[in-house]
């Protein structure tokens, strides 16, 4: 079943088109990455999916139901983590989660349990009685997530949840995302950090100027721009190099040998690093270093649009 289905969605602000005839579907159980530079239309799309903005044109369905016609159902199914911190500074962590979860119809003991559970999930259970002003940026971000997941939504939409935090908190959040996904939630994750998206997302859409310019798994996206990867192996000497055998390994296209390095160009979709290394070891070539260069999503974006994801 499609968790989220967007059909020819357009949003105009006056004359400016922020989202341009965008269609997309997210399957249940995916971690769907929404990758694009700032201002590409990610947030606008997300805001339309969460009914924060109305669409100029097009249709959005959550679990097969139109979100304007079945507004309550759709809202109940979604947990939304906004881009900016959306917590009350004058309420404790627990009260924040408790309040927002309560809006989703949880009551009494169940509400309490869910709130505590959500705080445990993001690792803030021991700080539940503290006020957010005493929190670090990363902790606030985690609280921001806890407020959105206490009601156990089927679909969690995260809008740049890791902006401006330390690497440790970021890892924590990325792990939480995986855990949430394992717990049964479909996740939509927007980011302009290509590493994050590459790391956790099973399906990725690259968006620019309000349009999806490419969509697919990591491998599929990379295959758009190249089908080659480079494996560069540093060795003590290339004297005993089994050239012909190397070339016969599945996927290998060319092998070049200089004095101390071997450059192998290979089909990107075949994982043949192990047989290559085994062969070299077996024929007595001493390996000093291996470096495999695969194209990154950044390269994909750069190749397709001519710009980098982060325009500084």
């Amino acid at each position: 079943m499609n968790m989220l289905e967007i059909k020819q969605l357009t949003k105009k602000f006056g004359e400016y088109t922020a989202v341009d005839n965008l269609s997309l579907s997210v399957q249940e159980g995916e971690i769907f990455g929404f990758l694009g530079p700032n201002g590409a239309g990610k947030s606008t799309t997300i805001h339309m999916a969460t009914s924060l903005l109305s669409a100029t044109k097009g249709e959005i369905e959550i679990m097969g139901r139109n979100i304007t016609k079945h507004s309550r159902f759709a809202k109940q199914a979604i947990g939304f983590v906004p881009q900016d911190l959306a917590i009350y500074e004058d309420m404790t962590a627990y009260e924040n989660v408790h309040f927002f979860a309560g809006l989703y119809g949880l009551r009494g003991a169940e509400l309490k349990r869910s709130a505590i559970e959500a705080l445990e999930f993001v690792g803030l259970a021991d700080r539940q009685g503290s006020y957010p002003k005493s929190f670090s940026g990363g902790m606030k971000r985690r609280l921001n997530i806890a407020c959105a997941i206490a009601h156990r939504p089927k679909l969690i939409i995260m809008d740049e949840p890791t902006v401006g935090i330390d690497p440790q908190s970021r890892n924590y959040i990325l792990n939480s995302v995986r855990k949430l996904n394992r717990r049964g939630s479909t996740i939509i994750y927007t980011s302009h950090y290509m590493e994050e998206v590459e790391e956790i997302c099973s399906q990725i859409a690259i968006i620019d100027h309000g349009k999806i310019i490419a969509e697919g798994t990591k491998a599929e996206l990379k295959a758009i721009i190249t089908n080659q990867k480079n494996i560069s192996i540093t060795v003590r000497s290339t004297e005993r190099l089994p050239m012909e055998q190397l070339k016969s390994i599945v996927g290998v296209n060319t092998v070049e040998a200089a004095e101390q390095t071997i450059n192998i160009s290979s089909a990107v979709e075949i994982n043949n690093l192990n047989p290559i290394i085994q062969l070299l070891v077996a024929s007595g070539v001493e390996i000093r270093g291996v470096e495999a260069q695969e194209p990154s999503l950044e390269t994909v974006f750069l190749t397709l649009t001519g710009r980098t994801l982060r325009d500084e």
Partner: peptide, 11 residues
């Protein structure tokens, strides 16, 4: 894709 951030480009 039309982009106007650095010059004008149409891809």
């Amino acid at each position: 894709i039309v982009d106007g951030s650095r010059g004008f480009s149409v891809t």
